[in-house]
Amino acid sequence: MPVTVETPTEKWAGKVREITLGATAAEGGTRTSTVTVGGEGTMPFLHFEGETPHRPVVAIEIYDIAPQDWSPILMDYWGDVVNDVVAWAKKAVELGADAIALTLRGAHPEVNDRSPEDSARVVKDVLAAVGVPLIVYGPGAPDKDNEVLVAVAEATAGERLALGLCEQNNYRTIAAACMGSGHIAVARAPIDVNIQKQLNILISDMGLPLDRILMDPTTGALGYGLEYTYSVMERLRLAALQGDAMTQQPMICTAGHEAWRAKESKVGEGVPEAWGDWKERGIAWETVTATSLIEAGADILVMRHPEAVAIVKKTIDQLVAK
């Protein structure tokens, strides 16, 4: 006898906010394409339950100088373009980047200490070379981050960049810069749902509209805390769907940065033979980290190896197919 089983679904009170990165000429910027993320009304990819109006996107991460500490696997792949940020950006777009994540590492006081003005010029050069939206990270030294990102924000007003990182102890300057120049702030909390929500509240209290705040829950790589990130993201998404207005920000995850810090991807010598081919392993490490984060609800993945990007984008195709 045929049995009809009704698929159990949740009726959610809330949904994730939609955020658009990049502004076209008509919108006051110069982008030829923009990216809209968020809007999910269900836990990830439960198409029978709710909408996932926008697919997760992949930003490829590039530096303004040749990276000093990247895995040889990455450096071999990219080759000479790492010495020319404009060429690197173009190549990344050719290889499928939906957006470029530009880290202004050269501005770090312990690297090249590049000035805020020169750093802003680098960002302008990249904007001129590619049409996709940009995510711009400071060098990773709080005071310099502030100086550099303020200069970048002003020089690129209206482009609707995402600027980061706003952290619990250093968010005001960057959030204010975003406010004045029409940019989006990336709010990062240390794998902590309560701090993430608090940071969102603090930034929105300053007056930055909620459709201009992305949240970065801090990524742990496969084998290095990925499961903690996963459960934090799950909790944030559940809260968002339950109607908590301060957790409804789309999530951005730095999968590449974390995955390529792991010994398994970074190091090829002095590791057990059973670990197999180094290159394959590194790409797999980034791929598995990124796809797990997509399953946890990531909206934007910042990645490094184009072969991993290709696999992840294919996975996204399958996940969004109904």
């Binding site: 309560n194 929500k197 608090q198 509240i201 909790r235 809260a239 339950q242 957790t247």
Partner: peptide, 12 residues
């Protein structure tokens, strides 16, 4: 545990 805790929960 109906709403996620944050230090500024009273302001939301």
């Amino acid at each position: 545990n109906k709403i996620l805790y944050a230090h500024s929960y009273l302001r939301v």
